[in-house]
Amino acid sequence: MRLLLQVALLCLLLLSFNARAVIETYEFSDPELEQRYRQLSTELRCPKCQNQNIADSNAPISQDLRKLLHQQLEAGADDDEILDYMVSRYGEFVRYRPRFSGATAILWLAPLLLLLVGIAAAVLTLRSRRSQRQAAGPLSRDDEQRLQDLLGKTEKDS
């Protein structure tokens, strides 16, 4: 009887209780819509809690935006329409992948520029190293003599 109780208690330990999910769930009429919902809600940024997307954030504004996203998806809006709608209200800030424009050009181009700078630096360094090696050239007669003396000395020592 006691063993049974112990086993039962052990089994109880195995049960895990999930933390209550804070994020509400939406029913979608089409799995493809759900896929787009996931994608868009990770791409849209919460305007209030600035470093979270609306999928991760539990701020009231994010809840509203998720609800809106769900409504728009079910209403048949395409991705561009939804993003335009959000951007016209919250500005380009709301997108984690902002459109290419004068203000965002540095964001899009900086990686490419840094890569080019890196390649240029590498090429220049390698080239200067090679030219240094070539500049060294053959040894002069004096140096040759010294080298021979030193080598002869070590041979004698050993």
Partner: peptide
């Protein structure tokens, strides 16, 4: 909060 949404209110 529908007008708030159209205004871009976030708090």
């Amino acid at each position: 909060g529908s007008l708030g949404l159209d205004l871009g209110v976030y708090g």
